[in-house]
Design a protein around this nucleic acid. Structure first.
Lengths: 361, 361
DNA sequence: GCGGTCCGTGTTACCGCTAACAAAACAAAA
DNA sequence: TTTTGTTTTGTTAGCGGTAACACGGACCGC
């Protein structure tokens, strides 16, 4: 037995796998990475050895040798905490798989100069690419600064992606259409809508989806009660107050995110309305808030973690391509959303009927 | 000029710094890490060179050479999203500083066998230590499994830390005392309390703090209205309903976390009570929920990010010590909390007075 | 049958850093 | 002054991978 090297950590290396498979380390390396030009029999032998030894490559050694990206930045600003944690989980996963570190920086300021300043400091440290989740993905000062420094960026949920930029998103328009159809199919015809922050392009997409779905069912979209919100709980409070104070208050309210939907539920309760018996309330995003209010919210689920993973992967791929000098491909990726139907939506005027039904059931 | 090496990434290395400072690479290494035995003049020269060249060491190379921990695990379970994202930010920061990767795994199940199973799979991959935030820090199956495998663990906010374990926490008892005093000093004498999940030791500490503070002010703690809750919004709904249905309902309610406090506010509103005019409501944790309800909650802020950072640092230090074979030191660390006074707490019976005041102001 | 091309694999030389050891510089003791 | 520590600094040999190139054999066309 060879005496163990003075600092090995015991876990087996590519060398061990090579020995076990009866090939050289290089061949193992080729098999593990998408290796072309490896005979099928060799490949299976190597994979067999990998499995037997439960081998997993050392990311530190890998990125050192390959000279790959090691630090990718994630600049975030106060989205809902639920969104951020989901996003971080996905980004972290993808980064680790690639052997890269995630460098976090927050940028809460709305001031253009300050945003540029933070960005500059961040970018000139040692990050090789930057992931920009919303709402920062819409920030022009940041995008401009990053472009000036020449650092690759991938935006997430940027409404109007840059011509030659990387972007990951969901189809906000389509999701809003589906949610509106859900309410229409329950029988609602007087549906209120609370818009999102006007700076977010997604807000407009959602509003368009809402209106188009109404038209599809022959409802006059121009007469539909719509109030401006800003994605905050507080703005949702105000907007829903206004909607419910209308002479003919809506039987359902579609809020552009969960925070505002939660606020709407709170206002409804304060007014003695039963949700969903007297008023259906639906949200968007499926953040943790959706299930921590009562009743739990019907909402649209964004695959936040998956979007983050995809974003990191796109960025790393772009970095690789740039380094190799290959022609860049401009990539946009749209991921699937899903309607999550919970307890806050139901048929209109169900309050009186629902009680007997419950007693009977 | 030497032709650039075929794969260097351009950023300057320890070699460049050494050349600039007129010393060897090893000396630079010593200066950068807590180097002992370096002449003061040499040290300053090196640091000068480091600054000039804007040098920052390559973490991949560092952990490869030093054979240090590269993967530390973080096993989490559905705490509030706000808590998790704060925690991740801190943990990530500390991990990156040390050149380690954070490996995430979630374990939502409450079933002992399943928890053990997840833990086993997680631990036998390639993590060298595990961070356990609440509520998992209280899970015996997980702790037992980890101990059996022999992987170092650091728990966070574990009520009764293990004899020889690493743990990071705040003083729940003291924080509860301070919060209760705050209410007492506002003039409240009939204060309701909503307990946390009985499995959490922190719940008991908070309840003790509450009772002791009452006694301190001559209030009969045994007669104080206390209801059992389980840290969920829903349990808060039920508990506060019970408290407010008492013949002499309390003028203030101290909920053991923000979720239950938010639920209490909701119940109060449904009953037509003004917060804080008719009822003061305070929470614990200062999660995002605290500022996304109206009125914003008075609460206790836990330094979540800092706790996560500390936890990772403790773990890495322990790992280093173990590898060196030095005697382990058992470390517990208690971080500072803070009382955050917002709008949900005020003097009792203020509803009638406050309106004229508002009108006058 | 012979040079060329492609394929599958091995060899070599690092990536950037640090542990361990060696050597030199300096100081204190004899 | 010599001897014997004690610092301070340099040298060597990797850590675990991968890029680049080398090499032998199969296949091809002439």
């Amino acid at each position: 037995m060879a005496k163990p090297s003075r600092r090995s950590r015991g876990s087996n290396t590519i060398e061990d796998v090579a020995r076990a498979a009866g090939v050289s380390a290089m061949t193992v390396s080729r098999v593990i990475n998408g290796g072309k030009n490896v005979r099928e029999s060799t490949r299976t032998a190597v994979l067999e050895a990998v499995r037997t030894l439960n081998y997993s490559p050392n990311t530190a050694a890998r990125s050192l040798a390959a000279g790959e990206a090691t630090h990718i930045g994630l600049l975030y600003a106060n989205p809902s905490a639920a969104y951020l944690s989901q996003f971080l989980i996905g980004a972290l996963q993808a980064a680790r798989r690639a052997g890269a570190h995630l460098v976090l920086e927050s940028c809460e300021s709305e001031d253009a100069d300050e945003q540029a300043e933070v960005t500059r400091r961040f970018a000139t440290s040692d990050v090789e690419g930057v992931v920009l989740p919303p709402p920062l993905s819409e920030s022009e000062p940041i995008m401009a600064e990053l472009a000036a420094i020449g650092i690759p960026v991938v935006t997430v949920a940027r409404g109007v992606p840059q011509e030659d930029g990387l972007n990951v998103q969901i189809d906000d328009y389509e999701a809003a259409v589906e949610m509106t159809r859900h309410l229409l199919e329950l029988g609602h015809r007087n549906i209120g809508f609370i818009k999102g922050h006007p700076n977010h392009v997604a807000s407009h997409d959602r509003a368009r989806g809402f209106a188009d779905a109404l038209r599809e069912y022959g409802v006059d979209a121009d007469r539909a009660p719509v109030e401006q919100g800003y994605f905050t709980y507080r703005s949702g409070l105000a907007a829903s107050e206004r909607l419910l104070s209308l002479p003919t208050p809506p039987t359902a309210i579609f809020a552009s995110n969960d925070d505002m939907a939660a606020a709407t539920v709170s206002v409804a309760h304060r007014r003695g309305l039963v949700v969903p018996g007297d008023l259906s309330v639906v949200g968007f995003d499926d953040t943790a808030l959706a299930t921590s209010v009562w009743p739990e919210l019907t909402t649209v689920k964004q695959p936040i973690s998956a979007m983050a993973e995809t974003a990191v992967e796109l960025l790393l791929a772009d970095l690789r391509v740039r380094r190799a000098g290959s022609p860049r491909r401009l990539i946009k990726r749209t991921l699937e959303h899903a309607l999550i139907i919970r307890e806050s939506s139901g048929p209109p005027f169900a309050a009186k009927r629902s009680r007997p039904q419950k007693a009977a059931g």
